[in-house]
Structure formats: C-alpha cells, structure tokens
Amino acid sequence: MTTTLDSPTVNMSAGPSAPRTAERERTRRAKKLHDRNLTVTLGLVLTFVVVMSLSPFVWAFLTAVKPFQAAFTNPPTWIFEPQFGAFADLWRGTQFASVLGNTFLVAVLTVIVALCVGAPAAYAFARYAGVIGPILLILAVVLRTIPRFAIVLPFYEASQALGIYDTNFALVAALVAVNMPFTLLLLIGFFRDIPKELDEAAMIDGCSHFGAFRRVIIPLMGPGLVTAGVFTLLVAFQEYLVALTLTQNSAVTIPVFIAAQKGADDVSTYQTLAAASILLVIPVVFIAIFARKYLVAGLGGGAVKG
C-alpha cells in the first residue's frame, strides 16, 4: 500500500487501489453537487432576467385590464377587478382593426416580392465565380448599413411627385428596397451550403439552368427561405421610420398608428394603447418562438458569413 501511495506510476499500472477510488468518488460527488448548485443558481439568475425583461409587457397588460381610476394611481394599485373594456374600445372606437389589416397586407406583400426578386439573385451571387458577385455583395453590405433616411427622403419627394404618396404600393416598394441587401446576405449563406454538384447533376439530366434552380435548389432551400421570409415579415411589420415618412392616412401601419396615438398624449387613450400593445406583442412573440430555430440558423449562418 505504501509503495502505491508513494509512486503513482506503479499505482496506475497496478490498477486503482481502494482509498484512491473512494477519494475520487468523493471529488466526483462534490463536483456533481457543485454542478447542481451552479445550475440552480444560474436558473434563478436567468429567471430573474426573464422576469425583468418581460416586465414592461406585464405592466402594459395590467394597465389595459385595470379599471380606469385604478390604472393611473401613484403608487400603483395592485388589487383590482380586471375588466376588458379597453380591448373593446380599441376594436370599435379606433382605426386599429383596419390599420392592423393593412399592416399584414403590406408585410406579406413585402415578403413575397422580396423573396421572388431576392432568391434568384442570391443564388447567382452564391454560384458565380466572377468578380461581379463580391463587388455587389460589398455594395449590399454598405447599402444595408446606411441610414434609411438617405433612401427614404428621396422616396418621399418622388412619391409626392408621382402621386403615390401614402399608398401601399410606395410603402412596399420602399420596404423591399431597403431590406433587399439583408435578404440577399441571408439567402446567399444558405445557397452556399447547397453543393454545386446538385445543379450540375440536374443540368446533365436535361434541366435548363433555371429548371435546376426551380426543381432542385429551391426545394432544398426551405429553411433558408423561411428564415429570410420570417425576418422580412418581422422587419416589415415593425418598420417605423419608413412608414412614418411615406404614409399619412390610408397606408398607415401599426407602429405609425401607435406612435400617433401616443403623440396625442390623451389620458383616455392610454388604456387602449396598452390593449393594442398586448394584442401585438403576443402574436409576434409566438412567431419568434415558433421560428426561433430558423432565426438562429439565419443569424448564425447566413448573416455571419456575410
């Protein structure tokens, strides 16, 4: 026993001795306990972070369902009879429903146009070996990062001159254009991951280049198209600056509507504003949770690859 303790090499070759094993078992258990404590601590910290992060929405919800007198007391009222009149007021008494419908229309049109135009181009950028691809890509990165006002102010002037100011057409055109570089960057990353050999095999089998793209590559691009689609949808839905500049009444979208209601600074609209916030937060969060896998893939892959 003494020999083994004095010379670990002998011990190793002779196999583990009893006290050593016990000691190792102890450290292993201690480590396991430490790990479990760490996990519990981290879980608590993260739960706290989540609660903090969601608190503005929780507060908006409480504001929406409080009776009017209880909603604006300082210090806040915590015990009250919940009521849902603000939601009814929002639906019946304001433009909310029609603005929401228009926002969905604009967002969906933006996604469709952006993907139809963007997907073939992204494919071409991913495949073409010449020098044009990289130059355009650089241009796309630059265009993605410049201030939107630099694009949208001329749009404003031009849409006034053409008589299409405050139309969905002008708004969709601007949204597609402003987001096109990003759509391209995202899609290029996905197209690069599809081996070139597939195009070639399809063309050897008699497909035209476009046929190969449509029949072979697009079906494989499901996740990529969903990612780009979800991104574009969220961006179009929440875009404020572009919509603020290009719309006034008939093509107004939700962010512009909310900001205008807020700007009116009328206490009687505060609860309908809170109700509107909640109605919008819930679906968007569901989309994000549902599409999270795709979003992570998009951000981790497509966008990073630049």
């Binding site: 969601l54 504003l273 968007v284």
Partner: peptide
Amino acid sequence: ILGLLMASYVVPTVIGALNFSWLFNDIFGG
C-alpha cells in the same frame, strides 16, 4: 428562456419603447 428573452427584441420597437417607458412614468404608477 431564450424564447421569452427574444420577446423584447422581436416586438415592434415603437411598442417596446412605449411599454418600457411606462415603467419609468409616474402617470402609469412608475
């Protein structure tokens, strides 16, 4: 947890900013 944390990122900025600022606004209980 990740999904719930994403809420503040995916919500339209205008709405997020509005709700966020209410926590600091005495009219809304502050």
